[in-house]
Amino acid sequence: QVTPQEKEAIERLKALGFPEGLVIQAYFACEKNENLAANFLLQQN
């Protein structure tokens, strides 16, 4: 279960064009650090 703040962060990451499953994995792998997760996702392409 995610908090409203976490859900907002996940939605912002999804808005970058990444699928939800990948976003969630990256977000939690980066210890819920939205900026770190965004950098991680962008570097995967």
Rank of each mutant, 00 (worst) to 15 (best):
L41V: 02
E31M: 06
L42E: 15
A37S: 08
E31G: 06
Q25A: 06
N35M: 06
I10Y: 02
I24T: 11
L22P: 15
A9K: 12
I10L: 08
I24Q: 14
L36P: 01
N45Q: 11
I24R: 13
G21H: 03
F28N: 15
Q5F: 14
V23M: 05
E6P: 03
Q1V: 04
L13E: 02
V2G: 05
V2A: 07
F28P: 04
L42R: 15
K7S: 11
L42V: 08
A29D: 12
A38W: 10
L41H: 02
Q5L: 09
N33R: 08
L22Y: 07
A37P: 00
N33M: 06
I10Q: 02
E8S: 13
P4M: 14
N35I: 13
E34K: 02
L41A: 01
A26R: 05
N33C: 06
I10F: 08
E6Q: 12
K32W: 02
L41T: 01
N45R: 13
V2Y: 11
V23R: 00
L42W: 10
A38F: 03
Q43D: 04
E20V: 04
E6M: 14
N35K: 15
I10T: 02
N39W: 03
V2C: 03
L13V: 03
A37K: 00
L41G: 00
N35D: 15
Q43L: 06
T3G: 07
P4Y: 12
Q43T: 08
Q43P: 03
A26V: 07
V2P: 06
L41P: 01
F40Q: 13
P19H: 08
G21E: 10
Q43W: 03
N35S: 09
N45V: 07
Q25H: 07
N45H: 15
I24E: 14
N35G: 13
L36G: 10
E6A: 11
Q44L: 02
E20K: 06
Q44M: 06
P4N: 15
A37E: 01
K7A: 14
A37G: 01
A29W: 03
K32V: 00
L16S: 05
Q1L: 05
K32I: 00
N39H: 06
I24K: 14
N39F: 02
N45M: 00
N39R: 11
K7L: 09
A9E: 04
T3F: 06
L13W: 01
T3L: 12
Q1W: 03
T3P: 08
P19F: 07
T3D: 15
C30A: 08
L22S: 13
R12H: 05
K32L: 04
R12C: 02
E20Q: 06
C30Q: 07
L42S: 13
N39A: 10
A38S: 12
